[in-house]
Amino acid sequence: MNLPRFFRNEMRHSTREALYGYGFVFIWVIGFAVFTLAPLAQTFYYSLNQVTVSATEIHLDSVKWANYTRALFTDPNFIELLVGYIIQTLISVPIIIIFSMVIALFLNLGFKFKGLFRTIFFLPVVITSGPVIAELTSQGATSAPGIAQSAAVTEFLMQLPRYLRNPVEYLLTSFILILWFSGVQILIYLASLQKIDKNIYEAAAIDGASPWEAFWKITLPSLSTTTLINAIYTIITLSHFSENKVIKYVSGQTYAVDGGIGYASAMSFIYFSVLVALLAIVYLFITMQSKKDAE
């Protein structure tokens, strides 16, 4: 037995493996440093300064946290847009999750023209770009057909208090748009539905479980990880969408006379932290829920 030598060989092997591994991912690490980490740090630095860009140089005046306090306490638009974004996201996520789960359950049944319906429900993913959505929304084509324009609905909206009116109005005018963000989620649900072992359903049926019970006791718990993935994907897609009002406001402020790069950077970071907070809330909510189910 030559233990040290054996050990040395083992070390060499794993070092060699690690080196090759680093070789493959090296390019990404460089890219991350140059195109993500450095600009992120720079943006944070800008957010603590008043930034003036002239033809020749970028001039920085330290203002400490003034840009942040301005966004949070002085600017009346930003907070309103931010709250609107939070409410819209919290409304949209459950709708998208439930809708895509229902459609996936339908599409998981065996019937004719299944492929056609799959094609229809995935179509929006291919064509959703900011300008296209902006055009369709401005022509009123994204509201639930015939609902948002009718006089009774307008009358009803007027009766609601302001904090309720905005979300309800959003729901009515952008109903189809919300559904349009479900394409990828439907496919993800469909893929994980197909992975559930068919034998479990058969066993449950023999034990006398109705399809209804089987759905709540078998299907839903098996989908909990998928639901989490879908919820996170949904939040991120909605938050990065270029027609998102907060994003539009921030990019508008970047070039505004009274705004500027420093102020826009501060708002970007506030927005980013809200996004992370939303992700954390939804993550905790879904994992707690599925834990409860498991008990």
Partner: peptide, 13 residues
């Protein structure tokens, strides 16, 4: 990189 919004990195770029 998937979570960070583009506007947090785009200006220095």
């Amino acid at each position: 990189t998937f979570i960070i919004p583009a506007q947090n990195t785009v200006i220095p770029q």
